[in-house]
Design a protein around this nucleic acid. Structure first.
Lengths: 206, 206, 206, 206
DNA sequence: CATGAATGAGGGTTCATTCAT
DNA sequence: AATGAATGAACCCTCATTCAT
C-alpha cells in the first residue's frame, strides 16, 4: 500500500531544499556571499556537495533562490496588509507594525535583505538584483497607492504619494537598521510608535 | 633652479595614488569587491601589478583606503555644515542640501558608500567596517546634537533627538537611493525640497 | 561480494599519497625546496593541483610529511638494531651496516636527510626542523646508551659515551656523504669495514 | 694634491663590498637564502638596491661570492697548517685545533658553510656548489697527503689515507655541528682533545 | 540516485631585476 | 655614479563545478 509515494518523495525533497536554504541564509548573512563556499553550505546542511548541486544549478542560483523566496514571503505579508479594506491610517499603522515585526528577531534575514535592497548586491553579481528590485519597487508602488487614497480622502497632505512612500520606507529601514546594529537600543514597539509619530506629524514644533 | 625636487616627486606619487583609487572606485562600485581582481585594477590604471602593491599593502588595504578617504571627505563636509552658528532650521536645510548635493553625479561613490554603511560590508570582510561605522555614527550623533538644540529653542518637537536624526538619515538615504536607481526621476533640488517638507511637517493633513 | 569497499578506497588513497611523496622527494632532492613549485609536483605526479592540496594542506606540509616519514622509517630501523640483545660489538657493527645500507642506492633520500639534519633546513623555514632534530638526537642518545653499556662491560674505553656517539655519527655520515658525491668510489661493504676499523681502533700505529 | 685618488676610491669600494657581504652572511645564515630578499640585504647594508647590483650581478652572484670568499679564507688557513714542516702528529693536532678554532664564535659562517658543504646547496641552485666542493675536496686531498706521510713514517696505520681524511673530517664536522646546535655543551678545547683522542686511538679498550 | 574525488582556472601576492633620472 | 620606482613573471592556494562510481 504505497499508493502515495510521489507526495512523500516530494515532501521529503522540499524539506531538504528548505534545510539547504536555511543553512545558506545563516552562512551568507554571517560571512557574506563570497566568504562562504558551496562545500561549507553542503557540509553544514549535512548533504554531499553533489546533492546540493542537484537542487541548485550553481552558487548564484542558490543565492538567488534564497533571496527571492525570502523577499516573496516578506512582500506578500506586507502586500496583504496594504490590500485590506478600511481606514487609511489603520492600514498604514498596520503596515509599519508589520514591517518592523517581520524582521524582529530575524537578524540574518534582515542583513541579507538590506544587502540586496540597499545597495550591495553588486558585490555579488551584476544582474542578480534586477528581479528583487522590481519586487521591491512593486511594494513601494502599492504603498504609494494606499497613500494616494489617503490624500484623496483628505487624510494626508497633497504631496506626491510615491515620494511619501519612499520617505516612509526610508524611515522604517533606518530604524530597522539601527536595531540591527545595536539590538538592545529600543524595543520594537517603541520604535513603531516613534516612526508613526515622526512620519505623520514631522518634527516641527506647533 | 630645481630646488624643490621632493615636492614634485611627492605630487607625482599622490597623483598616481589618486589615479589608482579612482580606478578602484569605479571597478568596485561597478562589479563589487570580490569580482574585481588586483590585476584588473592595475591594468585599468595602467600600472604594473607590483606598482599597485607599492601603494597598497594588499587588496583589503586598497579597499579600506578608498572607503575611508571617501567617507572622511563626506563626513567632514557635513560635519562642517552642522558646526555652523546660526538658525537651526537653516542649518538643517543646509545639511539636507549638502548631503543630497555631495552624491549628485557621483554614483560610484554613492553605491560604495551605501554598500558600506547600509549593510553589506560583511560581504567583504568582518572587521573592515568597524571604522567607517564609527565615523558614521559620529555624524548621526552630531546631527542629534543640532536637533537637540532645536528642541531646546522650541523650534522642534520634544522627541528623542537621536531618533529624529535616524529618521532624517533614513529619509535622505532613501531619496539618494532612489535617485541612484533611477537617475532621471527627479532633480536634486526637487528632492531636497520634498525631504525638507516631509521631515519637518510630516504627511498628515492639517 | 564487494563487502570491503572502504579498504580498497583506503588503499587507493594511500597509493596516491605515496606517489605524490615519491615525486616530491625526487624533485626536492634534485632541485631544492624553493626551486620546486607545487604545480611541478602535481604535474610530475600526474594529478591536478587541487588534488595535491587535498592530500597536503600546503607546500610546507608536503615537505614536512616527506621528511618526517622518511626520518621515522630510518630511525625506527636503526633504533631496532640498537635495541637488540647481545654482544655490544655485534650491535655496533650491525648499526654501522644498517645505517650505511639504508641509504645505499637511495641518493634522493640521503640528500634530503642531510639537508635537514646537517644544517640547511633553515633554508626552508625556521621551526620546520625542530621535530626532526629531536628525533635525530633521540637516536644519538640511544646510541650513546649502547656505547655506555660497552664501557661498563670494559669493551670500550672510558670516554663520554655521548661524544663517542657523536664521533661515530660523524664518521658514518662522512662516508655516506662521500659515497653520495662520488657514487662509484667504493662499495658499501668496503666502506662499512673501513668505518668499523677506524672507529674502533683509531689511526695510530701500534 | 689629490694624487692618490684611485687607491682611496678603490679602498672605499672594497669597504662597501665587505659591508654588503657581511650583511648578506648574517641574513643568509639566519634566514636561509630564499627567505632573504635583495632589498633586505640592500636595506640592512644601507645601500640602494641599484648599488647592490653594481657590486653583484645577481642574487646568486652575491651568494657565490660570499661562500667562495669565506671558503677561500678557511681553506687557506687550514692548508697553511698542513703545509708546515715537522712532526706529523703535531701537524694533525694543529689542524684539528685550527679547524675547530676557526668557527668558534662564528656561528653564521659555520651554518652557511655546512649548508654548502654538507648537503643543502642544492636547495639554492644546481651548479652553484661545484666550485666549493672542488675547493673542499682539494683540502681533503691535502689532508690525505699529510696522513700518507704519517703512514710512510710508520706513525699511522696502513690504511687508505683518503678515507682516513674523510673520517677525520667527519669527526670534526660532527663536533662542530653539535657545538652549533648546543653552544654551551662543551668548551672548544675539550672538544679538540676529545677529537684527537678518538681519532687517533679509537674507542676499543686496550 | 546520491556521492565526493578530482579538476584547473583564476586570484592575491612577492621579489629579482632593470633603467631613467 | 648612485638611486629607487617600476616592472611582470611566477608562485601558492582556493573553490565552483563535474562526473564516474
Amino acid at each position: 500500500m504505497q499508493e502515495e509515494k510521489p507526495p512523500r518523495r516530494e515532501r521529503e525533497k522540499l524539506r531538504q531544499r528548505q534545510e539547504m536554504l536555511a543553512v545558506a541564509l545563516n552562512l551568507f548573512s554571517e560571512k557574506g556571499y563570497h566568504n562562504v563556499s558551496m562545500h561549507e553550505v553542503a557540509e553544514r546542511a549535512e548533504f554531499a556537495i553533489g546533492t546540493l548541486y542537484k537542487f541548485f544549478r550553481n552558487k548564484e542560483d542558490l543565492y538567488k533562490a534564497l533571496i527571492m523566496e525570502m523577499a516573496a514571503e516578506y512582500h506578500n505579508a506586507l502586500s496583504s496588509v496594504l490590500s485590506r479594506q478600511g481606514d487609511i491610517l489603520t492600514i498604514l499603522n498596520d503596515y509599519i507594525s508589520a514591517k518592523m515585526g517581520i524582521f524582529d528577531g530575524n537578524l540574518a534575514t534582515l542583513r541579507l535583505y538590506f544587502a540586496e535592497t540597499r545597495g550591495a548586491s553588486f558585490n555579488i553579481k551584476a544582474g542578480l538584483d534586477k528581479d528583487i528590485r522590481k519586487l521591491y519597487d512593486k511594494l513601494v508602488r502599492q504603498l504609494a497607492l494606499t497613500l494616494k487614497k489617503g490624500i484623496r480622502e483628505n487624510v494626508l497632505r497633497k504631496k506626491d504619494p510615491y515620494y511619501m512612500a519612499v520617505a516612509l520606507e526610508g524611515i522604517t529601514n533606518a530604524f530597522l537598521f539601527y536595531g540591527l546594529e545595536d539590538p538592545d537600543r529600543h524595543s520594537y514597539e517603541a520604535n513603531v510608535s516613534l516612526i508613526r509619530d515622526m512620519f505623520f506629524k514631522g518634527v516641527l514644533a506647533k
